[in-house]
Design a protein around this nucleic acid. Sequence first.
DNA 1: ACAACGCATAACCTATCGGTTGTATGTTTG
DNA 2: CAAACATACAACCGATAGGTTATGCGTTGT
Lengths: 113, 113
Amino acid sequence: MTDESADRADALFHALADRTRRDILRRVLAGEHSVSTLAAKYDMSFTAVQKHVAVLEKAGLLTKRRNGREQLARGDVEAVRSVASMLSELERIWRGRIARVDVLIASNSDQED
Amino acid sequence: MTDESADRADALFHALADRTRRDILRRVLAGEHSVSTLAAKYDMSFTAVQKHVAVLEKAGLLTKRRNGREQLARGDVEAVRSVASMLSELERIWRGRIARVDVLIASNSDQED
DNA sequence: ACAACGCATAACCTATCGGTTGTATGTTTG
DNA sequence: CAAACATACAACCGATAGGTTATGCGTTGT
């Protein structure tokens, strides 16, 4: 758990902490879309959408590919999985707590939670 | 996918988008800790840690229980799972895209969306 | 009783966020 | 070539984030 992995976690969760970005991510996970195609779906400026795409890209949740004058974005499911695995770590920690409580109950049977 | 569930998703991801808060969450998932016990672990003021705990609480990632003058925090693993399920939804969307590509290949068509 | 502890809250500061407009640059297309 | 299109980027703006200090108030221990 170095400093860099914390930076990456910060970027990933921050990128996901905005509903417009989550919606963009859904679309680009379903298939490639140009930035202007995406921008057309939202009630905000092209530049605003462009910035959202940039945040997702810096977090590694999507990649861009140039095609003529268009910039095609596609979602990276591996990045989504890496977030899921961070949550799994939290689940493991929680299970560890339960295991410890179980040990207490087994060794000494008059405790409560 | 109402407005409220988006609010909740915003709050959850935002709460997780800070390394101090993720660390606090790990500790309270492992077991109950008072706010001042938590605050002692970090190089910042009690008030700062208190605010981090409040953010986690508003997102539903932890709950507080009063015990005398202490406020004991415990992590809520169900909230963690609800985040994981949001990521699963993204995975499903991604798999849908693959399925669609497979259909295109199978039917050997030349149309797009 | 009173000092120390644990917490809540308000006021404040700086940096970042999420949005805007304006301008410039490369790419198609008529 | 010129017009329209897709993008990039800078400058700006109000709101929020993340931190601080100060103050007050209930709870505990001596």
